[in-house]
C-alpha cells in the first residue's frame, strides 16, 4: 500500500518535471517547482515507511519548511519586477518628505 503510494508520487514527480521542462509560461514552471517540493516531502515520508525508518518523516517536515524559502523568493522576485515603478515612487515620496 505504501509502496503503491510511493510509486504514484514518483510518477507525479516525473509529470511535474515534464511540466517544468515544457511549461509554456513562467507560472507553469513556478507551480511545477512548488508542487515538486510538496511531492518531495510526501515521497520522503513514504520512503521512510517503505525503508522501515519512519524517522524520515521529521526530515520531510523540515523539507516543507525549506520549500517555503524558494517560493517566497520567487514571489518577491515577481513583486520586484512588476513593482519596479512603485519602488521608484516610494523613493520619490521619501525625497518629498525630506
Amino acid at each position: 500500500m505504501t509502496a503503491a503510494a510511493l510509486i504514484a508520487i514518483l510518477v507525479g514527480m516525473a509529470l511535474l518535471l515534464l511540466r517544468a521542462f515544457i511549461g509554456p509560461t513562467l507560472y507553469d514552471r513556478i507551480l511545477a517547482v512548488n508542487s515538486f517540493g510538496t511531492k518531495t516531502v510526501l515521497a520522503l515520508g513514504l520512503l521512510g515507511f517503505v525503508m522501515e525508518r519512519p524517522e524520515f518523516l521529521d526530515i520531510a517536515i523540515t523539507y516543507a519548511l525549506i520549500n517555503f524559502v524558494s517560493t517566497i523568493a520567487i514571489l518577491k522576485f515577481f513583486r520586484y519586477r512588476s513593482f519596479q515603478v512603485p519602488l521608484v515612487r516610494r523613493g520619490q515620496g521619501g525625497n518629498a518628505d525630506g
Binding site: M13, L16, L17, A20, F21, G23, L26, R29, I30, A32, V33, F36, G37, T40, A43, L44, L47, M51, F56, I59, T62, Y63, N67, S70
Partner: peptide
Amino acid sequence: LFAIVMLSGIYSLVSAAWYVAVDAVDVAF
C-alpha cells in the same frame, strides 16, 4: 534563465531526496 533557476531548484530537491534514500541524511539537509 528563469526556467533554469526553477529547474535547478528541482534538481536540488531530487538530489536531496536521493541522499535521504541512500541514508546520507546530513548531506541531504
